[in-house]
């Protein structure tokens, strides 16, 4: 599991939520450019593709949709599942995420119980449950 997210609060919550589903093997990348390089390295065989990416929509330097496009264009990442997590509830952003091939759009809620649902979503994608 790879999380590309810049906000420390969100990273904490995502880590917590995944922990509830016994997902401890987690790589965290803290900005868009580093995420871009990571995917490029996977393509060159220098890094292993994860099963699931959780990508923030608005990252510094490279946006979530840019990363989505790159991951979907990468052969080494074929079949990888992607969750786009976003602060926005805009239908436009959801449409953009779908267009670039996200498996799921998670509108980050401002309530703890709802937020940690992202753990269940990621776990389902990881274990290939519908």
């Amino acid at each position: 599991m790879v999380v590309i997210e810049d906000n420390p609060g969100d990273i904490y919550l995502i880590r917590y939520a995944l922990g509830l589903h016994a997902i401890e093997d987690l790589t965290v990348i803290r900005d868009g450019e580093a995420g871009y390089e990571f995917v490029t390295q996977i393509d060159r065989g220098l890094a292993t593709a994860p099963q699931v990416f959780i990508v923030d929509f608005s990252l510094p330097r490279r946006t979530g949709p840019e990363l989505l496009e790159l991951i979907r264009a990468s052969r080494a990442c074929a079949g990888v599942r992607i969750v786009i997590a976003s602060s926005s509830r805009s239908p436009k952003d959801q449409a953009v995420a779908r267009k670039f091939g996200a498996d799921c759009y998670f509108a980050k809620p401002s309530n703890f119980e709802e937020y940690i649902q992202i753990g269940a979503i990621a776990a389902d994608l990881l274990h290939d449950r519908p």
Binding site: N7, G9, D10, L13, S58, S87, S88, S90, K108, P109, S110, N111, F112, Y115
Partner: peptide, 20 residues
């Protein structure tokens, strides 16, 4: 509006967690 929401979410959730 997009960028404002992110820090607000942190405020809400972590003050909620503090209380809980």
């Amino acid at each position: 509006s997009h960028d404002l929401r992110e820090p607000l979410r942190n405020l809400s959730i972590f003050s909620e967690l503090l209380m809980k």
